[in-house]
């Protein structure tokens, strides 16, 4: 089992949801997040005083999948989020030792699926 964590541009969320849906990945958690990477932020101004903002709005996705779904999920996220510009985001894949469905007490791959 793997946990796939992706940071994407907020305005690409709907596209990513669509491509995940097409890849039959229906379970996902989404949170707003702030972060900085290669984009290095932008300038805002408040009453003429420039403020450098280096934390940009991103959306964080978390998807727990069984092994067979890892590549499919990664490809779906890339398909939906990629524009080719700096700031498209990153995907992290980490090992997931256990998963439990609270309602039934199922464990492992069954609980994910």
């Amino acid at each position: 089992m793997k946990l796939i964590i992706a940071y994407i541009q907020p305005h690409k969320l709907k596209d990513v949801k669509l491509s995940l849906y097409k890849a039959e990945v229906f379970k996902v958690s989404v949170t707003n997040s702030l972060g900085c990477g290669q984009q290095k932020g932008y300038h805002e101004s408040y009453r003429g005083v420039p403020i450098e903002v280096n934390l940009l709005k991103k959306v964080r996705l978390e998807i727990a999948v069984n092994e067979g779904f890892v590549e499919k999920t990664i490809n779906a996220i890339i398909e939906g989020a990629r524009t080719g510009q700096i700031g498209d985001g990153k995907i992290f894949v980490v090992d997931l030792p256990e998963c439990i469905r609270i309602r039934t007490g199922e464990r492992g791959g069954e609980a994910i699926g």
Binding site: N32, Y42, H43, E44, S45
Partner: peptide, 11 residues
């Protein structure tokens, strides 16, 4: 951001 260099909300 693009026209006025401001945001309505902060996180």
């Amino acid at each position: 951001l693009s026209e006025h260099n401001e945001r309505a909300y902060t996180m």
